[in-house]
Amino acid sequence: MMNLLRLINGRNASAPVARERLQILLAHERGLRGQPDLLELLRAEILAVVSRHVAIDPEKVVVRMDRGKHVSTLEVDIEVPNGVQRSIAAVGA
């Protein structure tokens, strides 16, 4: 009986996925209660630096993030004048 149960549960086990997602998410959210969020800082500073050189249209800035367990990705897409689109990708640990 036990083998049958493990067979069934093993196929449908979603709890481990949930646990992993929560670990990543809470690690990030707890981190926020201590120091400032690194990715947030990077985002703000990147935008500040770029805007010192180029007038940025806020509508033309797209920021995407993907926080992972060991590596998080920050993607900042800024359309600068003259119709040339430059893409800056930064990687933070």
């Binding site: 997602r21 990543i24 998410l25 990030h28 985002r43 806020p58 509508e59 800035v61 797209v62 920021v63 995407r64 993030m65 993907d66 926080r67 992972g68």
Partner: peptide, 26 residues
Amino acid sequence: DLILGAERRVVFDLINVVQGIAKLSQ
């Protein structure tokens, strides 16, 4: 966001848009 599996991609939220910190599209 959690139920939709987007929790790792949240940058700006509803209040950021209300406050004008971010545009809706962002």
